[in-house]
């Protein structure tokens, strides 16, 4: 098998435009791949995720999944997305927030209720099922979001700096939960992060987004050991 055969997500000469800012990309991601998206603030990392998830339509080129263009409706794309904040609805309990992953219109069968319990158990939150987001810690809220992703079983997972507000120990814990979920579902994952350590822990490859362009994924260790100029500027040369 050649590498081309394994690839599942394609961005073909894509251009995303948000107000005056535009981002170009031309790359593909392999099936089951774990890719970190790194680069300076305001250079388009989040724009890239919005484009892949369908909130932003490309002004040029196309985004393909498994050789086919994806639906225009973000909810019908084969993906789940986790933002930095506001992933949970504050007036719904943890269990109800997770349940949205099974039925976004909030009616569950008895079997589905059991699935929700199981998902909460898998992220270690079975005791907090009835708690509301305001009573959960940042780490626990992150777990609720991950439990929902686990239930949705979509083959692509997008993460927009979901753990950046957490302390180092909690962050590692969340990365472990994420790792477990990815192993369970075999999903492909793209994660925006500011933390080079997180990137190395989580990903095999990295996409550098700088100067309005998303570069092709590169093997992450070789990228950091021999950084191109744009990356040098971002991480600093004294490391």
């Amino acid at each position: 098998m050649t590498k081309e055969d394994e690839d599942i997500l394609y961005l073909k000469n894509v251009c995303f435009t948000q107000e005056k800012f535009s981002l170009t990309a031309d790359f593909s991601v392999s099936k089951g791949g774990r890719v970190a998206i790194i680069g300076p603030s305001g250079e388009g990392k989040s724009t890239l995720l919005l484009g892949i998830s369908g909130f932003l339509q490309p002004t040029a080129g196309e985004v393909l999944w498994d050789g086919k263009p994806m639906s225009n409706h973000p909810g019908q794309r084969p993906l789940s997305i986790l933002f930095q904040e506001h992933n949970l609805f504050p007036h719904l309990s943890a269990a109800d927030n997770v349940a949205l992953g099974l039925n976004p219109n909030m009616w569950l069968s008895k079997e589905q209720v059991l699935l929700v319990d199981k998902a909460l158990d898998q992220v270690g939150l079975s005791e907090k099922a009835e708690a509301y987001p305001r009573d959960l810690s940042g780490g626990q809220r992150g777990r609720v979001g991950l439990a929902r992703i686990l239930l949705r079983k979509r083959p692509l997972i997008l993460l927009d700096e979901p753990f950046s507000a957490l302390g180092p120990a909690l962050k590692d814990e969340m990365l472990e939960v994420l790792d477990k979920i990815l192993k369970l579902t075999g999903a492909t994952a793209l994660m925006v992060t500011h933390d080079t350590n997180d990137a190395i822990k989580f990903a095999d490859e990295a996409i550098l987004v700088a100067d309005g362009h998303a570069h092709k994924p590169q093997e992450i260790k070789s990228l950091f050991s021999n950084p191109p100029l744009a990356l040098q500027k971002y991480i600093g040369t004294r490391r």
Binding site: F55, G75, F83, P90, H91
Partner: peptide, 26 residues
């Protein structure tokens, strides 16, 4: 209302009524 909240509902595929209950009514 944070924009993310709408994106979460949309990416989950909620219909208009669910979106009303999830975001607009609160």
């Amino acid at each position: 209302v944070p924009g993310e909240r709408f994106r979460v509902a949309d990416s989950l595929g909620s219909n208009s009524w669910a979106k009303f209950l999830l975001i607009e009514w609160p």
